[in-house]
Design a protein around this nucleic acid. Structure first.
Lengths: 177, 177
DNA sequence: AACTTATATATGATTTGTCATATATGACAA
DNA sequence: TTGTCATATATGACAAATCATATATAAGTT
C-alpha cells in the first residue's frame, strides 16, 4: 500500500493535518500518479498512528476549528526509507480506453473516429496544461529545492506520456481512415 | 466497471466457460492493460447472468469436468455497444514508481541510481518481449482478422510506452549523474 | 497407491478505493 | 438571519480487486 508511504513522505517536510495533506499536497504535486480520497487519507492516518509510524497533537487555532497535527516518528522514518530502497516490481496500469479500443470492431468507422478524436483533443489539452506548469516558485528553501528536482522528473514523465499518446492516437486515426 | 464489458466483448467471439475466458483471453490478449483475477471473473459472470446480459448452459465433457458455457444475450450486446460508443473520461493511472521517485531525496545518489538502473533493465526486457509478439498467426478467420487489427493498436501503444519510459529513465539517470 | 498436472467452478477474507453524508467552527455577504 | 464558503475530522456503505483455499474429475507419472 503506497498511500501510507506517500503520507510519510509528505510528513518529512513538516508536521501537518490531514486536511492540509489533502489540499496542499495530494491535490497538487502527486495527483497525476497517486490521487487520494479524503476519507482514505483520514483512515490511513488513523492506522499509521496505531502502528506508531506517526503521532498526533491537537492544535487549537484562532478563527478555525482545532487541528490534529501529525508528525512522522523515528519508526516511520525507518519504514519510509526501507520502502524507498526496495525496487517496485512491474505493476500493470489498467487502461479502460485500450480495452474499449480492443473491442472497437463492433463500432462503425465514424463512431470509432469520433471516439479517437475526442480522446486526442483531451490529451492535447492535458499536454498544454502540463507545459504551463512552473515548479520553480515552489523552491522556497533548500529542502523544497531538492524536492522540486524530483517533482520535475515526474512532470517530465507526464509530458512525455501525453506526447506519446498524442502521436499514437494520430497514427491510429491515420491508419483507420 | 470495465471487467463486465471485457467479458461481454470476448463472448461476442463465441460462447465459452469462465476457465477458457481466463486462460485463453484475459491471460493473453488484454493482460497488459486489464488483468483479471479468476475469482473476479467467476463472480462477474454470476452477476452478468443475474442481470440477464449473458446466459449459461451446462456442457458435459468427455475426460474433463463439466463446463458452464456462457453466451452473450441480446440485452448484453446492446449494453456492450452502448459502453463502446460512450467516451471514457480521463482516468488517473496510479504509478507507485513515480511516487517512489518523488520522495527519492531521502536516498543517496548510489541507491537512487541502482533503483533507476534496475527499472531501466526491466523496461528494456519488456520492450524486447513486446517486439517479439506476432499477432498474425491468430488471424484464423475474418472476425479474428478484424480483432487483430485492434489488438495491434494496443500492442503498438505498449511498444511506444516502453520506449518512452526507457528514454525517460536514461535521461533521468544522465541528469542525476 | 500416491503424487502431480490440467480442467473446471466456487467461496471466504481482506485490502484498497470511492461516494455520500454528518458534524462543527467561524468568516463574510445578501 | 439566512446562506455560503473555507477549515477541519469522521463514518457508513459499497465497489473493485486480490489472495487463499476448497472441491471435483481424470489423465499421466513415480
Amino acid at each position: 500500500m503506497s498511500l501510507k508511504y506517500a503520507i510519510l513522505g509528505f510528513l518529512t517536510l513538516e508536521p501537518m493535518s490531514g486536511y492540509r495533506l489533502k489540499k496542499e499536497f495530494f491535490d497538487k504535486s502527486v495527483r497525476n500518479f497517486w490521487p487520494a480520497d479524503q476519507a482514505q487519507i483520514y483512515r490511513t492516518l488513523y492506522k499509521l498512528e496505531q502502528e506508531k509510524w506517526i503521532s498526533s497533537a491537537l492544535i487549537p487555532q484562532a478563527n478555525k476549528p482545532d487541528q490534529k497535527r501529525y508528525s512522522i516518528s523515528e519508526l516511520g522514518q525507518t519504514e519510509l526509507r526501507s520502502w524507498l530502497v526496495k525496487p517496485i516490481g512491474h505493476t500493470t496500469e489498467r487502461n479502460p480506453f485500450l480495452l474499449q479500443l480492443y473491442f472497437a470492431r463492433h463500432l462503425s468507422q465514424a463512431e470509432l473516429l469520433s471516439l479517437l478524436q475526442e480522446r486526442l483533443k483531451n490529451h492535447r489539452a492535458r499536454l498544454e496544461i502540463f507545459e504551463m506548469v512552473d515548479l520553480q516558485p515552489l523552491a522556497v528553501n533548500e529542502v523544497m529545492k531538492e524536492q522540486i528536482r524530483f517533482g520535475g522528473y515526474t512532470l517530465d514523465f507526464g509530458l512525455r506520456y501525453e506526447r506519446m499518446q498524442i502521436e499514437w492516437l494520430e497514427d491510429v486515426i491515420e491508419d483507420i481512415k
